[in-house]
């Protein structure tokens, strides 16, 4: 006589607030500060005894089978004072068909996720299959769409298999506004126009994401680059050849731009900008190939953007 049982679960609009939920410890554990949002849940959990080894009558074990729908609405919060997110809606279905692998199907939308550069209107769907002994998980994320820096990023498919040391996927970039890219360096005095398109291969290593080599191309008809102001002047005086380069960049019109990108998990970002164009007042507008190699740390840039734009404080003020 094998025993069994089940429990119903029904939760309506529980306020997502660690304190109110009596889970204050979770704040430190998850390093997440919850500012807003509500959780609803519905479904049941069924458990039963079964004979694990058909030849061994005494090998009785319990197994359980969830069939739960979870719904999170308008969740806003801050993760590790590093990233804010706003208005996340999430629907999760947690099931374990025939006591086999666990399956979590989810749909996520977010108004904004901001680690320093605003990632807006995020949409994604995913299916996670987790082995019953929780030893391995295969997460398939499909149709990720988001708006970033005036353009759009689409990720058709990400397959993340926890058994694989390396997982790779490609992100499609459409119409990234060079004007907004230049504005990230607020103090530098760079104005630039044009739009970038391309595909970046991303490799997920144990120590973090990496872009071994990717390229973006400026859309026709290209655009302009004007590097003026204090930084440009100080560079101009640094040495003669840099001075010449600054002279060209004072008012450079390009019709072709290839941007080679490499990124390492520690944040090191290398941009190889290959412009083809001219400066009307430089050698009376003779065709010029300008190769600008930029080397900086993306994680430091994001941190300085977070500090200067006061991203965390602004979200806190909004919800308190």
């Amino acid at each position: 006589n094998l025993q069994q049982g089940n429990a119903q679960l029904y939760l309506k609009n529980l306020k997502l607030d660690w304190q109110k939920m009596g889970l204050i410890k979770m704040a430190d554990l998850t390093q997440t500060q919850l500012l807003n949002g509500s959780l609803s849940a519905q479904g049941w959990v069924q458990w039963q005894q079964y004979q694990a080894d058909i030849f061994d009558d005494s090998s009785i074990a319990w197994r359980w089978q969830p069939d739960l729908m979870l719904r999170i609405d308008d969740m806003s919060g801050i993760y590790q004072e590093l990233t804010t997110w706003e208005d996340i809606d999430m629907q999760l279905a947690i099931r374990r068909p025939f006591y086999d692998d666990f399956r979590i199907d989810s749909q996520v939308s977010a108004l904004s996720i901001n680690p320093g550069i605003n990632i807006a209107n995020v949409l994604a769907r995913s299916t996670a299959t987790i082995q019953s002994d929780l030893s391995q998980a295969l997460i398939v994320i499909e149709e990720v769409h988001t708006d970033v820096l005036g353009g759009r990023i689409n990720v058709p498919l990400i397959r993340f298999d926890t058994n694989q040391k390396v997982n790779a996927f490609g992100i499609e970039i459409e119409g990234l506004q060079i004007e907004q890219l230049a504005a990230l360096e607020a103090g530098a005095g760079i104005t630039a126009t044009g739009q970038l398109d391309g595909i970046l291969p991303i490799i997920l290593l144990p120590e973090g994401p990496q872009v071994p080599a990717g390229s973006l191309y400026a859309r026709a008809p290209g655009g302009i680059v004007q590097f003026r102001g204090a930084t440009a002047n100080s560079l101009k005086d640094s040495n003669p050849s840099v001075g010449l380069a600054m002279q060209v960049l004072n008012d450079f019109r390009y019709d072709k731009l290839q941007t080679d990108i490499t990124y390492q998990p520690d944040g090191e970002l290398n941009l190889g900008l290959q412009f083809q164009g001219y400066n009307p007042t430089f050698f009376d507008g003779q065709a010029t190939h300008f190769n600008l190699n930029l080397e900086y740390n993306l994680l430091d840039l994001l941190e300085s953007l977070r500090v200067s734009n006061d991203i965390v404080q602004k979200l806190e003020n909004k919800y308190q």
């Binding site: 530098a188 380069a245 010029t288 190939h289 740390n297 941190e303 300085s304």
Partner: peptide, 18 residues
């Protein structure tokens, strides 16, 4: 004049503002 002028420039940008 008929050949393009080539300019190469390397710039390292520091960001540790904080």
């Amino acid at each position: 004049p008929d050949k393009p002028i080539t300019i190469n420039l390397n710039v390292k940008i520091e960001h540790e503002v904080r």
